[in-house]
Design a protein around this nucleic acid. Structure first.
Length: 293
DNA sequence: CTACAGGCTGGTG
DNA sequence: CACCAGCCTGTA
């Protein structure tokens, strides 16, 4: 286990920010989060700004510190936004624990192809089913309450995200019943594009490309348009200048930024601000609906 | 029943 | 270039 203090981070908020669909509460252990990414698995609990992870320090530093983007000071972004931009300030205050995870590129390609014209519940279900059906079953370390009330490590099974070859060999018939709808052919196409040595080389080129080149490389793929390409740039390549505009963000811009969002001012990190705004719009409790919840 | 999900493709004007 | 119907399917 590894204990560490981390500012500006909250699992609940990250999990609800629509960037990650493989972070979920452990139903058996209250307060424990299950996190699967890049073929690895960890569980964690949080108390204020102190986190306990089920892995050792080396595994944490080698894998999870990067995944949670700990080298980036998110508090700094909060200080740099326009002090007169009340909507953005509210959004960042509401989603104080949102960060941009450094997730696996291949996983993001599949995930955000699924996300188009779709809702978060269904996306999560599809991703989970894909891992269950095609991913390798593995044993990782989780957390459990010990007899003295503290935490102990306990082995836990999980499904790794499948490899491109696993999906390309499945074919359209194999991809049926996952709730993908018409997106199945897009998934199959990207799986083929990422398979084999040539596919891995293409992924590598994508990782080495700058934002503009990466975006146009992505747009060449079947089923990837402007918005999905921006999501993959932001969440799979960590080009935090990318600013995906979906229906929610478009509505935010229409209502709160009729003169246009100041993209020039925030060129270097607009995607991070987008994430706070998205989270705020999707998760804030609407006035008048308080009674019904 | 309709409307809507973190849109894209392919066809038309 | 802009515009837009159609698309899978679960949920409100």
């Amino acid at each position: 286990m590894y204990r560490i203090q981390i500012k500006d981070m909250d699992f609940e908020q990250i999990a609800r920010s629509g960037q990650c669909f493989r972070m979920e509460p452990n139903e058996e252990e209250h307060g424990v989060w299950r996190i699967a990414a890049s073929g690895r698995y960890v569980e964690a609990v949080k108390e204020d700004d102190v986190f306990l992870f089920s892995c050792g320090e080396k595994e944490f530093q080698d894998m999870w510190a990067g995944y949670f983007d700990l080298q980036t000071d998110y508090g700094g972004f909060k200080k740099r936004v326009d002090s007169e931009d009340s909507y953005l300030k509210e959004a960042m205050e509401w989603g104080w624990g949102v960060r941009i995870l450094r997730q696996d590129l291949w996983e993001m390609l599949v995930t955000f192809l699924i996300s188009q014209n779709n809702n978060i519940t269904r996306i999560t279900g599809s991703v989970k089913e894909i891992c269950k059906r095609f991913g390798e079953k593995r044993i990782g370390l989780g957390l459990a309450v010990s007899s003295d009330g503290g935490w102990v490590e306990r082995s836990k099974s999980y499904d790794a995200f499948p490899e491109p070859e696993d999906l390309s060999s499945a074919g359209l018939r194999g991809l049926a019943g996952l709730g993908l709808g018409y997106r199945d052919k897009y998934i199959l196409s990207i799986a083929k594009a990422c398979s084999g040595p040539e596919g891995r080389e293409w992924l590598l080129r994508l990782k080495e490309a700058d934002y503009t080149s990466a975006h146009s490389l992505l747009m060449e793929q079947y089923g990837i348009g402007r918005k999905v390409a921006d999501c993959i740039c932001l969440f799979g390549l960590h080009h935090v200048g990318a600013f995906p505009v979906d229906t929610h963000v478009r509505q935010i811009l229409e209502v709160h930024y009729p003169q246009g969002f100041p993209l020039e001012r925030y060129q270097e990190y607009a995607g991070i601000l987008q994430q706070y705004m998205f989270y705020y719009k999707v998760n804030k409790i609407p006035r008048g609906k308080l009674g019904s919840i």
